[in-house]
Amino acid sequence: MVTVLTEAGHKDVPGDNTRGDDLWLSSGDAESATGWTLKPEGFCQGDVCVPTPQGKEAEFTDGDAVNVTAFWRHMGRPVLHDSAGDTWMLGNSASERGSALESLEAPDFTLPDPRGAMHSLSDYRGKKVFLTTWSSW
């Protein structure tokens, strides 16, 4: 079993999925763990697809299995894992974070309040929102 971390949270995926520095998942597991899945057009999230690089198909796909880390690195996103290869972090790239900010459309997020009720920033459209941060430390 491996644990896959993304900005959306963490997901445990059963099976032996690591090959060296790469994480291979069935296309169904890839979708549940990352939101991305294998389609004829390539590796896709919703309408966005990243084609498999030509001539490198064997590095990226193997039947129904997809090398999610190869696609992640191909998208310029950071990939990290612990020394045992049990926990994998699939990060976001500076360019996607940067272009989101540059659009000036406030990046959305969903987080719990102290009673556990979930709130999205976008729930507050129609109001001026003063979004501030704090900490106990």
Partner: peptide, 26 residues
């Protein structure tokens, strides 16, 4: 708990704030 907001908005300290208008624009 994951500091998602710091990541999304490239924050470096607290308190940092962002003003967002009625249309969701910074």
């Amino acid at each position: 708990q994951e500091h998602v907001v710091s990541d999304l908005y490239n924050l470096t300290n607290v308190p940092q704030a962002i003003w967002i208008d009625e249309g969701g624009q910074i």
